[in-house]
């Protein structure tokens, strides 16, 4: 299906377009949705809640992306679009192919078939580092803070287009010093925003799990991305840091970036995402706004493994739910009786 088909012509979307600077220090978002959050939800309100639904202004579009490992088809996505300026969650049970799909989109793995475009340009067979240079940066499920570099060096490494990273100019400090200084200023601003400035000179390996997640996100922002792909940003994060991390993700949207993230934590998904794409067994089985998707029987099936059995009739389903509830009731009684 061509990406442009059936797209509503909404010109008032430009508000959500991400072409402003976003390196500055922004105050953490106040509680409640910001203007861009409201705009993103407004725009997505009329999008049909079916897998592969066309979005008014997609930034990332995948078509027929297939990845097989031997006989196993890990990913088989017919069509999916991600709305510009919105936070889209990619959820699904373990083994649904979310991370594999992420790896394919960001050039860390190559699909057997399929094409996908970022800002209208094809990314098929584009190596991972070029994907990042085009403005689509990712983080990893297992955090990849570079332990034996200091926090500030981690940050500096994130800046793109550094003259000093070219072998021939590297030996002459005066060639790259100015750029290095301005990168350092930008890094320090980001560190302040992510409350890591106290750790500036520490080895990244000495940070806690949550701080590493923050560092990885801050470092990714050094590349000045327009699309941020977060692979399980909440995994292994101390609950005390969760709110701050959520705030930072929302901040990205307020600065005009698009966010796509994989997550298992449903509270987080409900809290921050404007749109949810559900994968199961490598395919997209549902999409929609968070509340609608979580009530979708196809999603519940995907999580509970209903797809292994014959399709349920509604009576069967009601019966099973009643049985399960009775079981729970009994357990609760026993618990109380003890």
């Amino acid at each position: 299906m061509p990406a442009d088909e059936n797209r509503p012509d909404l010109t008032d979307l430009d508000e959500g377009a991400p072409h402003e600077g976003h390196g500055g220090s922004h105050p953490a978002t106040a509680p409640g949705p910001g203007p861009r959050a409201l705009a993103a939800r407004e725009v997505l309100r009329d999008v049909p809640r079916v897998p592969g639904a066309p979005k008014p202004d997609p930034v990332l579009v995948a078509d027929g992306v297939v990845r097989r490992f031997g006989g196993l088809t890990a990913v088989d996505v017919q069509h999916v679009e991600f709305q510009r300026g919105a936070i889209t969650a990619l959820i699904g049970p373990n083994g649904a192919g979310k991370t594999t799909f992420f790896n394919l989109l960001t050039g860390f793995d190559r699909p057997d078939e399929g094409s996908w475009t970022f800002e209208g340009r094809s990314l098929a067979r584009v190596p991972a580092h070029r994907v990042a240079r085009r403005g689509m940066v990712r983080t990893f499920q297992l955090t990849k803070a570079l332990s034996r570099l200091t926090v500030i060096e981690n940050m500096r490494l994130g800046a793109t287009g550094q003259v000093g990273e070219r072998l021939l100019s590297a030996m002459f400090r005066r060639v790259w010093r100015g750029q290095e200084d301005s990168n350092t200023r930008r890094a320090d601003e980001l560190l302040r925003r992510f409350k890591l400035d106290a750790k500036r000179e520490d080895f990244a390996g000495s940070l806690s799990g949550g701080q590493r997640k923050l560092l990885e996100m801050a470092r990714a922002l050094m590349t000045e991305p327009r699309l941020v792909m977060l692979d399980e940003p909440m995994a292994g994060v101390n609950p005390a840091l969760t709110q701050s991390l959520l705030g930072h993700v929302k901040d990205l949207r307020e600065q005009g970036m698009t966010v796509v993230f994989v997550e298992h934590d449903m509270d987080m998904v409900r809290d921050i995402s404007d749109w949810v794409v559900v994968m199961a067994q490598g395919t997209v089985v549902a999409e929609g706004p968070p509340d609608a998707v979580m009530a979708d029987p196809a999603v519940i099936d995907a999580y509970l493994g209903g797809h292994h059995d014959a399709p349920l009739t509604e009576e069967d389903e009601a019966e099973q739910i009643a049985a399960a509830e009775a079981e729970l009731e009994r357990e609760r009684d026993q618990e109380v009786g003890r």
């Binding site: 960001t106 860390f108 190596p127 991972a128 580092h129 070029r130 990042a132 240079r133 940066v137 990712r138 983080t139 990893f140 990849k144 803070a145 570079l146 332990s147 034996r148 570099l149 490494l157 994130g158 793109t160 990273e165 990885e216 470092r219 990714a220 050094m222 590349t223």
Partner: peptide
């Protein structure tokens, strides 16, 4: 030396 995928994800060849 630490993690080449991390470096790759930051746009380095």
């Amino acid at each position: 030396r630490e993690d080449e995928d991390a470096v790759r994800s930051l746009g380095k060849n």
